[in-house]
Simulated assay, not measured.
Amino acid sequence: MALNAHLEALKRKHQAMSEAVERAQRAPGTDDLEVASMKKEKLRLKEEISRLSE
């Protein structure tokens, strides 16, 4: 059961990161490096979700 809870938490973090990336891309003056860093974190979360789901 702990694995399912961990997966759900990762999915929520991934969704929140996705929304944050979208907001940052729409905001004027957002640093491109910051957006790139957020995208890397989002990808890391996705990869971890995939790895744990196998």
Rank of each mutant, 00 (worst) to 15 (best):
R44S: 09
M38P: 03
Q25P: 01
S53D: 02
E54W: 05
L33Q: 10
L43Y: 06
L52S: 08
M17K: 15
Q25R: 15
T30D: 09
I49A: 07
M38V: 04
L52A: 06
S53P: 02
S50D: 09
K11R: 12
K46L: 10
A5T: 12
R51P: 00
S50V: 02
T30P: 01
A2H: 12
Q25I: 05
A16L: 10
M17C: 07
R23M: 07
D31N: 10
A20K: 15
S37P: 00
H6V: 14
S18N: 13
D31S: 11
R12D: 06
A5N: 14
D32E: 09
L45D: 01
E47K: 13
R23W: 04
H14C: 14
E34M: 09
L45Y: 01
L33P: 02
K11I: 01
E22T: 06
K13T: 01
L7S: 04
A9C: 12
A24L: 05
M17G: 06
T30N: 11
A20T: 09
K11Y: 00
S18D: 07
L52F: 03
L43G: 02
S50I: 02
K13S: 09
R23G: 02
L3F: 07
L43R: 13
Q25K: 15
R51Q: 12
L52N: 05
I49C: 04
L3N: 15
L45I: 10
A36G: 08
E19T: 07
E54A: 10
A16D: 12
K46D: 02
E54H: 15
M38I: 04
R12M: 11
S50F: 00
E41F: 01
M17D: 04
K39P: 01
E34L: 06
H6Q: 13
M1V: 05
D32Q: 11
R51Y: 09
L10Y: 03
K11H: 03
L33K: 15
M38S: 04
K39C: 03
A9R: 14
A20C: 03
E22Q: 15
E8S: 08
A27K: 15
R44C: 09
E41P: 00
S18L: 03
E47I: 06
H6W: 07
E22M: 06
K11T: 03
L3C: 09
A20L: 12
L33N: 11
M17W: 09
S50C: 08
G29E: 06
R44I: 03
L10P: 09
S50W: 05
E8L: 04
E48W: 00
A9E: 12
L10M: 12
E34Q: 12
R23H: 07
S37D: 12
K40R: 15
L45C: 05
H14P: 06
L3P: 00
E48Y: 02
L33A: 09
K13R: 15
E19Q: 14
